[in-house]
């Protein structure tokens, strides 16, 4: 992990989208007055004729994206996760997921790591909302390269996809040799003392915890669950069989998020205990992202504590 090389997944998204737009003329991009923050502005500058600012009208943005996809376009619709899911859930459900349309909803600024904007802008329920929709893919990436692989991969599948992106910059985790496949979690390490399933911005925290614990003679593994739906059942069961303790961590509510998705698999396939780390049935707070991670117990130190003491 390269701690010097920090980048937010929204930035990687914007860069990759603009790159893909060059070869793939079917890609069209929509935003709801937040293109500077979601980074769709990079695409907009390069391909103004294929970029549509819909104004602060998320519902119409989703329906317009649905309409564009019926004409063979590959629409990417972006806003903050709060508004994309919160304001336009009905349009996502009935105009995109239900008719099974090829629309990519790429929502940035998810989770408490939005920071200073505070609870009203910190979307903690989006994974749950999107995971409940039949046909919908749900993804949440953790570093620059993984985000770019994901953006490329979702362009190739003709499915509705929700990609959760963040404002908080994360270190570089992967190099070019890493294999990426939608629906396949990435296992980091072979430790058998515990498995930490993580998604998005907290994956680096889990890796830091793993490295620190190693020094103390405790060997854990980290699983980066970049795809939350369809979830990697096989890998979850394998880790449950091979490791003594199971922990999930996410910058999202512990209700209906990654942890719930994992326990859904465990209850049916391999019943055992899972400790869920995340936001525990409450709203966020305003503050610097780094401090909020500490406040909500989502740091490497908190993971170490859970591995050792619960």
């Amino acid at each position: 992990m390269n701690l010097e090389n920090l980048k937010a997944t929204r930035q990687s998204y914007g860069e990759k989208l603009a790159e893909l737009g060059e070869e793939n003329k079917d890609i069209v991009v929509l935003d709801a007055d937040l293109s500077g923050a979601t980074k769709t502005s990079i695409f907009a500058k390069k391909f103004p004729e294929r970029f549509f600012d819909m104004g602060i009208s998320e519902q119409d943005m989703m329906s317009t994206a649905a309409g564009l996809s019926t004409f063979g376009k590959i629409p990417f619709a972006s806003s903050f996760a709060m508004f994309a899911c919160g304001r336009a859930y009905d349009q996502i459900r009935n105009s995109i997921a239900y008719p099974h349309l090829n629309v990519k909803i790429c929502a940035s600024h998810a989770g408490i790591t939005v920071g200073e904007d505070g609870a009203s802008h910190q979307m903690l329920e989006d994974i749950g909302m999107m995971r409940g929709l039949a046909n919908m893919y749900v993804m949440c990436t953790s570093d620059d390269l993984e985000t770019k692989w994901a953006v490329e991969a979702i362009t190739k599948i003709k499915e509705p996809v929700y990609l959760r992106l963040c404002r908080y910059a994360t270190p570089q985790i992967y190099d070019e040799n890493q294999k990426f496949e939608i629906g396949k979690g990435v296992q980091i390490g072979e430790g058998t003392d515990a498995t930490v399933f993580a998604t998005g911005v907290v994956v680096p925290e889990a890796i830091k915890a793993k490295e620190e614990l190693e020094k103390q003679g405790i060997n854990i593994r980290v699983v980066d669950m970049h795809t939350i739906k369809p979830i990697d059942e096989e890998l979850i069961v394998k880790c449950a069989k091979e490791t003594k303790k199971l922990i999930s961590i996410e910058d999202h509510s512990v209700i209906n998020g990654l942890g719930t998705a994992i326990s859904d698999v465990l209850t049916e396939k391999y019943p055992c205990k899972l400790i869920k780390m995340g936001i525990k049935d409450r709203y966020g707070k305003s503050g610097p992202a780094k401090e909020l991670l500490k406040y909500f117990k989502l740091t490497a130190e908190d993971i170490i504590d859970v591995v050792k003491n619960s």
Binding site: V28, E49, R50, T64, G67, L68, T70, F71, G72, K73
Partner: peptide
């Protein structure tokens, strides 16, 4: 849909 057909001038 109306926007898409404008894009490709499909009439």
């Amino acid at each position: 849909m109306a926007l898409a057909s404008k894009l490709d001038h499909e009439g």
